[in-house]
């Protein structure tokens, strides 16, 4: 197993951990407030549909030439990574590296709308389904794309599976621990990694070569790391200058 694959597995592990934290936060939050049966039923249906979507997505990717696939993966990862990095830089510049994540999603909205209808709480079902399916879709996307790009889809799946099991186990064993994880810092690190891989693969897929071959990944990583820390500092300076 070379350095490139280990680096890929660490990245998949971290991204999956972030998404799994969001997924379990939604499921546990809805389960505690609306009841477990409908929530877990919705989550279960979401998981089954997710399996079908991943299977179809994997078959589709297998038909695409490797360079086109790498360019496509690079573009998707970078668009995703730029968002995470930008948001985490902004939040960290406001509240520091050890702050919890400011969750912007509508995790608990609509929960007071209506009670159980016809025996099953459809609101809890829908929220459980959405939490599992859409957060799971992001995990599946990361596993399939990272795994395909590095020709190690099995190892990417193992890294994601380990991260998922750890997060879910911790979440159900000690729910309060989830709120102690510095979500912004985790997204900051993952954002840097996503930007690094996205940049590297997209450039390779589009016919550009990197100085030093695979070592180019480390150069990109260094660039984005310096840029991210520098941006936190710059945004703090800019904010204090604007507020006088």
């Amino acid at each position: 197993m070379n350095t490139h694959v280990i680096f890929m597995m660490v990245t998949v592990f971290l991204i999956t951990a972030v998404e799994a934290i969001e997924m379990t936060t939604i499921v546990i939050g809805v389960g505690l407030t609306r009841g477990w049966f409908a929530t877990l039923l919705g989550g279960g249906v979401g998981m089954i549909l997710l399996g079908g979507a991943v299977f179809g997505f994997g078959l589709l990717l297998a038909q695409i030439p490797l360079n086109v696939l790498r360019a496509l993966i690079g573009i998707l990862l970078l668009l995703f990574g730029v968002q995470w990095l930008r948001k985490s830089i902004y939040r960290i510049s406001k509240s520091g590296f050890w702050s919890g994540e400011e969750e912007e999603e509508e995790t608990h909205e609509e929960q007071e709308d209506q009670g159980p209808v016809g025996g099953l709480d459809w609101m809890a079902f829908a929220r459980g389904f959405q939490g599992v399916f859409f957060e799971g879709l992001e995990i599946a996307f990361v596993v399939v794309t990272f795994g395909s790009g590095a020709n190690s889809i099995g190892l990417a799946g193992i890294a994601a599976g380990v991260a998922f099991v750890i997060v879910v186990a911790v979440a159900f064993a000690a729910r309060n621990l989830l709120t102690q994880i510095p979500g912004n810092t985790l997204k900051f690190v993952v954002g840097i990694l996503l930007c690094t891989y996205g940049t590297y693969w997209a450039a390779v897929g589009m016919g550009s070569s990197w100085p030093g071959g695979d070592v180019g990944v480390l150069v990109v990583l260094g660039f984005y790391t310096l840029y991210a820390f520098g941006s936190v500092f710059a945004v703090r300076r800019l904010r204090s200058a604007m507020t006088g």
Binding site: I89, A203, S231
Partner: peptide, 16 residues
């Protein structure tokens, strides 16, 4: 290889 990092630099800096 430098084009995308420059674009990311501009994108995030402008947005922030």
């Amino acid at each position: 290889f430098w084009v995308v990092p420059v674009a990311v630099f501009i994108s995030i800096s402008l947005s922030l």
